[in-house]
């Protein structure tokens, strides 16, 4: 009969009206500034640079300015200038570091490719999303000081991934130390065996 479909529709909306008062599954609204969203660990928005500690962020940056991310970045929002000198990294190896590391967050599309291609676990995705600024350049173009965040922060936002990365880096470090020890031992044996030449300069 004419009208039965309309009545059924009215019944459904009425049910939803009542349900909205007692069934939280129906209500999905989050009252945003009052209630901050619970971001999943995998949430990604804008990269940051991982530093080993918070006290000396520029000195302990993992980034070695290899510029792979700059090349792979689809919208080309990363800009890196290599340093002229070298600094020792966490493994004690001398590495370049980025003298300039800019990310234009107005261009960045948070695709995470920089993170995936980084062989040093130096760049990771952040959880910030409220980055409104009044100036496009001073506000949205982040330089390396603004990008650097300590490893503890990484642990805070993505505990699982950070632990895995730490484990891997620790293993690498251990392996490097092992190798260095072995090399030193070999060198020592070599030195004891044959006195002259080859020593000195090669030791890290």
């Amino acid at each position: 009969m004419l009208g039965s479909g309309i009545l059924k529709g009215l019944a459904v909306t009425a049910k939803n009206f009542v349900g909205s008062y007692h069934n939280p599954a129906r209500m999905v609204t989050q009252e945003y500034p009052d209630v901050q969203p619970q971001l999943p660990a995998n949430y990604r928005n804008f990269p940051f640079l991982v530093t080993e500690n918070a006290t000396d962020p520029m000195g302990t940056m993992r980034c070695v300015a290899c510029q792979i991310c700059e090349k792979e970045c689809p919208p080309q929002c990363i800009y890196i200038e290599k340093s002229k000198d070298k600094k020792p990294d966490a493994n004690g190896k001398l590495q370049l570091y980025p003298a300039v590391f800019d990310i234009d967050t107005a261009v960045c599309m948070s695709c995470q490719l920089c993170v995936e291609v980084c062989p040093f676990d130096a760049i990771k995705m952040d959880h910030v999303f409220a980055i409104a600024a009044t100036n496009r350049f001073s506000g949205l173009l982040l330089n390396r000081e603004e990008l650097a965040k300590p490893n503890t922060y990484f642990h805070e936002i993505r505990p699982d991934e950070a632990a895995e990365v730490d484990g891997r880096l620790a293993a690498e470090r251990a392996a490097a130390e092992e190798k260095a020890k072995a090399a030193a031992a070999a060198k020592a044996t070599a030195a004891t065996a044959t006195k002259p030449a080859t020593g000195g300069a090669a030791a890290p």
Partner: peptide
């Protein structure tokens, strides 16, 4: 749709630009 997008977000990191 939001519920599915929440799933996408928790897996891929983004609701719509999953990559």
């Amino acid at each position: 749709r939001e519920k599915i997008l929440d799933l996408f977000e928790s897996l891929s990191g983004s609701r719509m630009m999953c990559n």
